[in-house]
Amino acid sequence: MKIFRQTFRAMAAEHEIQLAAPDIDRARRAADAAIADVMRIEAKYSRYRDDSVTSRINGAAGGEEVAIDAETAALLRYADECYGLSGGLFDITSGVLRRVWDFRRDPPVLPTPAELASAVALVGWREVEWTAKAIRLPRAGMQIDFGGIGKEYAADRVATICLEHGMRHGLVNLGGDIRAIGPQADGTPWRVGIRHPRVQDAAVAGFDLAAGALATSGDYERYFEIAGQRYCHILNPKTGMPVRYWQSVSVVSPLCVVAGSCATIAMLLEADAPAFLESQGVQWLGIEADGSLRRP
């Protein structure tokens, strides 16, 4: 068994594919095919590209419907499922709230109630008209984005592509979203650490992962503080305000896309997260606002 490692950049993050295989050329071919697919997904769904599916849909908001393919329809169907199961908190039209929350601004400024209200008014997955063939955002200014599921979906597809190339040992890390392709070369599970939400480069816990995926959603990725209060990038689509209850939630599931959306929904559900996570049959680890660990 030889170890093959490839790091690459896409979707504004650093990624790594690690494979162990008897044939290093085969591992390289698997990784090449997988990376090509990540690039394909980025090009197709990035909201920063004018020619992406996302930009075309958003550009037509308030106007004509936009034709979509089967993959996009499948992602919308999944997003719709997340919306329903989260009581409307996981909403792929909530990206518009970023207009009033600028986490890079220095010094940071809170949005005014009027600004918040106008942004919240543009959120609403329920109003979106969509079928398996087309989608239409009913009002100008509305937006969708696949930021909440695209990277995790890509991680699952990377694992599939590697498996289909005969890989049986490996780990995919797409910007902190982890999917195991199989155990380590010696058969032991991967030890995956959970980042400490307040201490850079420290781990608070570890998961053993031989198969399946681990994703974490936290309040430390983008945030600012005003008067000792942390305002993070995970925004409640109904109020437009950042969530508060958890520092981070990590979820283990067979699929990365499920782990990722469960972790995000848990952050959004705040105190109601444990019951939701139980209903999804996933393993999880939450870190509460005071830093204490919470598990099922």
């Binding site: 992602l75 169907r77 999944y78 699952d156 067979p254 896309v257 499920v258 999804q280």
Partner: peptide
Amino acid sequence: LLAAALALPGV
């Protein structure tokens, strides 16, 4: 959610 995600292509 896992049941729904299994309908995604290639996961």
